[in-house]
């Protein structure tokens, strides 16, 4: 590379990073969505969408991606306990943003045991349920290149993102009560590098680049898998969430659920949609109606006052009963 470096975003995770200082190629001006911010100004430019492609058929389960993730993000997952499975730790945590999930699956067509290994983590949905559910302005953002990122200083730790996510990804830290997940290494991508996991993957089962390139690369892989007898090989880029910026090549793309419960047709739960949509508008209208109705009634209906007649009637009623000792009860009225 000669002359000044133009940082237009990374094309791949494989090449070595430039050694010169580099300005970040995207930032706050490139937000397409910002949680709890309905009046976000539209971004002036559209960045080239990026994507990470995980080819499940090439994964050897070495967990280099997990190590690289821990290393880059400087997290310290607790030392685990072996319960007889390779999946370690047993679930995503606030210190483990990506996790190899191992599944032993017997293929009913061939009666072969297949060892399915899926690298779980944030899918960077085009329509992110976490962002939709988040009540804190700016705690979750989405850039025009497709990266969905958590801005921890704005996070209030409510856990709404956990309920909004169709993939069960975000985790709330018990230490600082903020939500954590894979950032797609937004800090690396911003300076022209690919995600740490992709960089570390020894078989290039994880690759990174523009979404276009990744789809093209996936098409070649799928063709290859089909020629090897995986008739249902395909790309996992689920349309229910508008597509994702982390995609899988699956050898059994007709049944994603066999890969450690990868959702077949993920979408933001209709319950979450109703909560964040209809309930909010109808609810605010109902409360407003009650408040305004009260004010109108208060202005137009005369106050309901006790008259002096009422007081006299009460005095008469009490007076008909003998003053002090309750010795001579009288009929009322």
């Amino acid at each position: 590379m000669s002359g000044s470096i133009v940082n237009a975003g990374p094309r791949t995770a494989v090449s070595n990073p430039p050694v010169q200082d580099m300005p970040s190629y995207f930032g706050e001006q490139d937000l397409v969505r910002r949680s709890a911010t309905p009046d976000l100004p539209p971004p002036a430019r559209q960045l080239t969408p990026v994507a990470k492609l995980i080819d499940v058929s090439k994964c050897i389960g070495c967990k280099a991606c997990q190590s690289a993730c821990v290393e880059w993000n400087d997290t310290t997952p607790a030392i685990g306990e072996n319960v007889g499975v390779y999946t370690n730790p047993h679930d995503l945590t606030e210190n483990m943003f990506t996790l190899m999930r191992f599944t032993e699956w017997v293929n009913p067509d061939t009666d072969n045991l297949e060892w399915l290994i899926r690298k779980d983590g944030c899918m960077h949905c085009a329509d992110p349920g976490c962002l939709k559910a988040c009540p804190a302005p700016g705690a979750i953002v989405q850039y025009t290149n497709g990266i969905v990122d958590f801005i921890h200083e704005n996070c209030i730790g409510c856990g709404y993102c956990v309920k909004g996510c169709p993939f069960n990804i975000p985790r709330i830290s018990k230490a600082d009560h903020r939500s954590y997940k894979c950032t797609l290494c937004s800090d690396r991508v911003a300076v022209g590098q690919g995600p740490a996991c992709a960089k570390a993957c020894p078989t290039q089962a994880i690759v990174f680049g523009t979404k276009e390139d990744m789809k093209r690369h996936a098409a070649g892989r799928i063709e290859d898998l089909k020629s090897r007898g995986f008739a249902h090989a395909g790309l996992y880029d689920p349309p229910g969430v508008g597509g994702t910026h982390v995609m899988y090549v699956l050898h059994h793309a007709d049944k994603p659920h066999i890969y450690a419960d990868l959702p077949d047709d993920p979408r933001i739960s209709p319950i979450v949609q109703t909560w964040k949509g209809l309930t909010k508008y109808v609810g605010l209208a109902a409360m407003g109606f009650m408040a305004v109705g009260s004010v109108i009634h208060g202005v137009f209906a005369r106050p309901n006052r006790v008259s002096s007649e009422d007081e006299e009637n009460a005095e008469k009623l009490v007076g008909t009963v003998a003053p002090q000792p309750p010795s001579q009860p009288e009929e009322r009225g």
Binding site: V306, S307, S308, E309, D310, E311, E312, N313, A314, E315, L317, V318
Partner: peptide, 8 residues
């Protein structure tokens, strides 16, 4: 409350 209020 006043007796009148209760009466009313």
């Amino acid at each position: 409350v006043t007796g009148g209020w209760a009466w009313r």
